[in-house]
Design a protein around this nucleic acid. Structure first.
Lengths: 418, 418
DNA sequence: GCCATTTAATTCAACCACTGAACAAATTGG
DNA sequence: CCAATTTGTTCAGTGGTTGAATTAAATGGC
């Protein structure tokens, strides 16, 4: 999970006991989620019918939500037939917002997402961060975050928390154990950010959560993608290959928070040796370096994020080596993905990160392997599609995860803003 | 999930809304779970301290649980220091119990597990069921179930539900889509059982749940295994290779309930063709037939469950072909398991089903592959161990799942027994 | 042997949040 | 312009938790 300061909340504690006030707490969440999920602004009466609560209760709950600036009344009431016109309820666009941050190999990003899910700010600072020390990188990130925060405040938003995406393994407490492509090892992010506004807890609410880039990108996809697919695998193809696993609408993080190491699934047990110590890992066949080498671009030392667009350009132009490289990579990816789908029975696979611009060429071999190897594919097909957000979805996903936390447990925000 | 009659319960509906009575409903579950999880009979006061509820509330809740025969007071009160002696609370051994059933290739099984988790009945009917029609097989099963039920009733137990384990894919509604080794296809279990006591719903409570054998075996392991490992992979090595995935203490069933097809994870993408249409599936290297063939026992046509013991005997005797066969199978299994652990970050892998008696020889190569290929294995080792229940754990797991449902939502039972 | 001490469990008035019904508000249609 | 209709609010009633006081049942010191 990697939350800096685990903020479990007052009620509904780890014991699960339901106290007096939990009733209201839970119903606030139920009603707010319903408003968030509705496709058009629902009325109080519709919410009552949908949730099974009384209209009286819904009114009281909605009053609390409006007072807490989480919900607003949509002025143009949706016209229906006879009767008193309903007043539509929408998520407030001027209430709390989430700050999403990302450190990657060749850029820093900060973005702000409001309650409705709209991206209100998006700043990117391009620079090769490999030669930069972690402390300096976080310095620049803090500056970028401050700029984003200032712009958001000017728009009337209040930041309710932040999430930082890192391309590596993050353990509890925000410690980055290993980010190989960044060259980080045991970097204590909260320690290095100490004293900066980002790190100051406000009323006990954790200001910053550090998480794996693939995890947050998957959350971004859950947030931005088409509704319906609540169980999917989001594959982030960068230099390494990470995956975020969303099961029934919740991100699965694993026993220690280190799930999703798709890049080291064996696709050829006696194949190419991998720097992880294993052999035949997917990364050696479908990782960025492997694709570049197969396309004849080895050692070109491209900026990491232009590698994908460069490959896309070459493929577009019909370069045979590139096309073969992408087909081979897609086949290897398909083998690994087929195993995952057999195991987890997912209905959707999303190609994200560096794979997003290459999805046109990667998808066919992936689909071919999946439909050949997945037992249940015959009577229940698996969808393979590019990520809705494309690259840099991790920052958006991080910001969205902050917002999602508020929607899932509005009491935390309401207590803060009193 | 494959519940025959989805019994969502009255309160805490699909909307998640929390109504008046849900408060009690939830607290009943909280207190009961606590009693179940405690290592010695807790007092009401201890429960209050542990849950955060008031002693008054706990008393009221416990009264309800005792009245509903879910909890009993342990007579020998645990001695402490001064003060009025506490009255220990334990799960009732004479209350509701679960019936677990299993149809497999060469046996039928029925067992009864009470609330405390004790196996109170265990009947096995050995017979090769491949030549038998599904209707006849279910006939025999119903007879076995009736015998187990009668014996349980004689001991003062009340059956609260049943779960049937089938070695195949089960879809919602109890329809067995495909059980290859049994030769079943689209078998409508509830339809064939119609009219039998097993299929009669009592007060809307689903009398029978049909589920995959590997899923229920994993639940059995969760129930019987050492506490602590709440995220594990339970591998059932039969003719096919199934796996039950338990994440944070709950069985993961997949988007459509067809998760765990470990047998068709590719371990050699250009390897042996598999009858699933794929190539190099694990089943072709570590399935029972593959091991027997490699050990020189191909076509011996052994009763399926003696195959494992036969192999164990040969390995015990030092037969070189068998030892090589087991090492190779273990290596293939290790490759697949390493991929799974990389993906899901599990800390434990349980070898169950037919693998249980062979674990002594399979574990070393599995561990070798896992520690070589799992990225995080270095600083956080993965445990590989044989199943605590061994073969036939599916029936026990099924019975335990019935009991677990009661502990997780006691209101369902209390409403029934009023 | 008795009483202060201690801890367990119950009782009871207060209170919080939901319920259900009655009522006020706001619009359509005849 | 009024009946019909639907939304939203008000208010007494109720279920269930809370917190403090009370009763219950032991230990241990004098």
């Amino acid at each position: 999970m990697a939350a800096l300061w685990q903020c479990q909340g007052v009620t509904n504690t780890s014991t699960g006991a339901v106290r007096q006030g939990s009733l209201r707490e839970l119903n606030l969440a139920v009603v707010l989620r319903r408003i968030a999920a509705a496709d058009r602004p629902p009325s109080r009466a519709e919410l009552a019918a949908a949730t099974g609560l009384t209209r009286a209760t819904v009114s009281a709950v909605v009053d609390d939500l409006i007072a807490g600036r989480l919900v607003a009344e949509a002025e143009p009431a949706p016209r229906t037939g006879a009767g008193r016109p309903a007043r539509g309820l929408v998520l407030a666009a001027d209430g709390p917002a989430g700050l999403g941050l990302e450190v990657n190999v060749d850029y820093l990003a900060a973005c702000v997402v409001d309650l409705t899910g709209a991206v209100r700010q998006h700043l990117v600072d391009r620079a090769d961060l490999r030669p930069v020390s972690p402390a300096d990188a976080l310095d620049r990130l803090a500056a970028l975050a401050a700029a984003a925060r200032a712009a958001a405040v000017r728009e009337g938003l209040t930041l309710a928390g932040a999430a930082l995406a890192v391309p590596g393994l993050v353990s509890d407490g925000g410690l980055v154990r290993l980010a190989p492509n960044l060259g980080w090892r045991d970097v204590d992010v909260p320690g290095l950010l100490a004293g900066r506004p980002l790190a100051e807890p406000v009323d006990g609410i954790p200001p910053l959560v550090v998480d794996n880039e693939a995890n947050l990108a998957a959350l971004g996809e859950l947030h931005a993608g088409p509704p319906g697919s609540a169980s999917f695998l989001h594959v982030s193809g960068e230099i390494g290959i990470g995956a975020g696993i969303v099961l029934d609408g919740v991100l699965y993080r694993g026993a220690r928070g280190w799930s999703g190491e798709l890049g080291h699934i064996p696709v050829d047990p006696r194949g190419r040796p991998c720097r992880c110590g294993g052999q035949g890992c997917l990364e050696r066949y479908a990782g960025q370096e492997a694709i570049l080498a197969a396309a004849g671009l080895a050692g070109a030392d491209l900026p990491a994020d232009t590698a994908a667009t460069r490959l896309a350009d070459l493929a577009e132009a019909g370069d045979p080596a590139t096309l073969t490289a992408l087909t081979d990579a897609g086949t290897a990816l398909g083998v690994a993905v087929a195993g995952v789908v057999n195991l987890l029975d997912l209905d959707t696979v999303v190609l994200g990160g560096g794979y997003a611009p290459l999805a046109r060429w990667l998808s066919p071999p992936v689909i071919a392997e999946v439909s050949r190897r997945v037992l249940t594919a015959a009577w229940s097909p698996v969808t393979v599609r590019p990520a809705a957000l494309g690259a840099q979805s991790a920052a958006v996903g991080g910001a969205a995860s902050v917002v999602r936390r508020i929607v899932d447990r509005p009491v935390g925000w309401l207590a803060r803003s009193s």
